[in-house]
Design a protein around this nucleic acid. Sequence first.
DNA 1: CGACCGGTTGATTAAACTCAATGTAGGTGG
DNA 2: CCACCTACATTGAGTTTAATCAACCGGTCG
Lengths: 229, 229
Amino acid sequence: MSISMQTISPSSRPAVDRRHVAATSSPLFASAPEFLGTSFSYGRDEEIYGDGEDTEFVYKLVSGAVRTCKITQDGRRQIAEFHLAGDLFGLEFGKHHHHSAEATTDCKVLLFKRRQVECLAGENIEAARELWLLTANQLLHAEEHMLLLGRRNATEKLAAFLLEMDNRFGRTGTIELPMSRRDIADYLGLTLETVSRGFSQFQDGKLIALVDARHVTLVDRAKLARLRG
Amino acid sequence: MSISMQTISPSSRPAVDRRHVAATSSPLFASAPEFLGTSFSYGRDEEIYGDGEDTEFVYKLVSGAVRTCKITQDGRRQIAEFHLAGDLFGLEFGKHHHHSAEATTDCKVLLFKRRQVECLAGENIEAARELWLLTANQLLHAEEHMLLLGRRNATEKLAAFLLEMDNRFGRTGTIELPMSRRDIADYLGLTLETVSRGFSQFQDGKLIALVDARHVTLVDRAKLARLRG
DNA sequence: CGACCGGTTGATTAAACTCAATGTAGGTGG
DNA sequence: CCACCTACATTGAGTTTAATCAACCGGTCG
């Protein structure tokens, strides 16, 4: 099923796959057990929504990974955030998205009508707070990330990235990276070559071990934390 | 009065200057005409609140300019945003500030008890929405700024900065910069020397005219916009 | 099998940083 | 009032970091 989804055009998104799933497990919509989401799948590199588009839906990521990014006219890209399973994304205060979202891996999402979410927030003050929390958490991350982008060097950026990913995957020490070197570079404000070189240096310095390009083991977390600053 | 205020320690902030001012003119608190703020002044470079501190107040800037920033352990600084007269700042979803705020110039603010703001938002859904809007607008700016920090070169950063400031001062074409070269550098992720050189180049290229270091006239806005990308 | 994609590595370049000197305006005190 | 001092800004010279350009490697897919 997910394969057939990859081939559809982004604009034809909504009307497919009517399999409804209860959203009661979501912290956001916990207050409305009757609230339902539509399941949907996206293939790798498929656009979920584009910068400037109307905000029809709010998305909850079930599996896979999603990047939200902005692109300059000449194609330079900055990834603001990676979303992993369980994350909500695509919520806007206004009518339009101010960044685009793309699948970094094949992924499954639940779609919630923005109008329904708004309605819920309009009558339920707890729900309204949860929407605010969601935006506040994104801002929290953005402020930390601005410091990284503006004031940290390549080594520090990479150490910070590895520790962030380790945290998000539950500090298991072994990370299965759901994104390419280019994605990492566009997240950290580097080139993919610099990312690759950095990983190699970390490996030479016994800070990490690369099982393969996508599987990293953090060998010396303390030293990584020191490098991050 | 403002002079005496500059000399007090940041921790003794609250209990001084009990002159209350109605906040009805504020779009945020328009729904609560009885809501009052306490006027207060800060001297240049004085800290208004520190990173990690409890969020006692929400601030409305009456005059002057404020920077919100994060600092690394070794003293590198990233300014997230400049706030100008009329702006609200210091609002957090959580209990603690996740950045510090400092006066870039002598400035006057109105302080609102966070508890009161929370209370208001707890019963008034419109007020709750306005808090969300405030955070959402900060996020909007942060996402744009991440693109600038991660993917734009010094020239583009400076052009973007000048156009942003021009916009915020009402597109008069002449800007009285309320911040130093170092502040600009820490906002754009550059050094102050690079900022200075950039301004000089813009002046040589007849894009801007520098009356003095703090007074810039935008001579060729179209070319600046092209440089920004 | 060959093409392609993603990743790694190497050589060179360029942009911005660092260090340093000089300039300038505002404030203070003799 | 002028001399001096300080803080901020500008400019220059040399260095460093990360970007660019390019080659190569290994797996996968048609």
